[in-house]
């Protein structure tokens, strides 16, 4: 069954197709909804048709929801954090994981 996730970016233009490390939140209903995972994943703009393709909703830094979701294929789940000091930019650290 397809799963749905949401990710947050500063701007939609920050997100590129292809292999990415990103934080996603699992939108499966229940008491664990919105649980966070850090994953390596393959992203695509097309709407997902493949059996391993899941839906990725995208929100901006103000929480604005982009109307067109992308497709995400999770390749690997990582520990749910990145290296960095408190108050440092998480997105800068994420880039090191690519």
């Amino acid at each position: 069954m397809k799963r749905e996730y949401v990710t947050f970016v500063r701007k939609i233009s920050d997100l590129a197709e292809g292999r990415q490390a990103l934080f996603i939140k699992d939108l499966s209903p229940g008491p664990r909804k919105y649980d966070t995972k850090l994953v390596r994943a393959e992203l695509a703009r097309r709407s997902g048709e493949g059996p391993d393709d899941n839906v990725l909703w995208i929100r901006s830094e103000t929480g604005y929801l982009h109307p067109q979701p992308w497709t995400i294929r999770i390749l690997e789940e990582l520990p749910p954090h990145v290296a960095g000091q408190p108050w440092q930019d998480v997105f800068a650290s994420l880039k090191q994981l690519k």
């Binding site: 947050f8 850090l38 103000t62 290296a83 000091q85 998480v90």
Partner: peptide, 24 residues
């Protein structure tokens, strides 16, 4: 934690807007 961070926010905050504080 002194050496690990993760994505936080955004959140509808006290000024009455979700103005974009996130990821720091």
């Amino acid at each position: 934690l002194p050496d690990r961070i993760a994505l936080e926010g955004p959140f509808g905050e006290y000024p009455g807007y979700r103005s974009g504080t996130m990821g720091e």
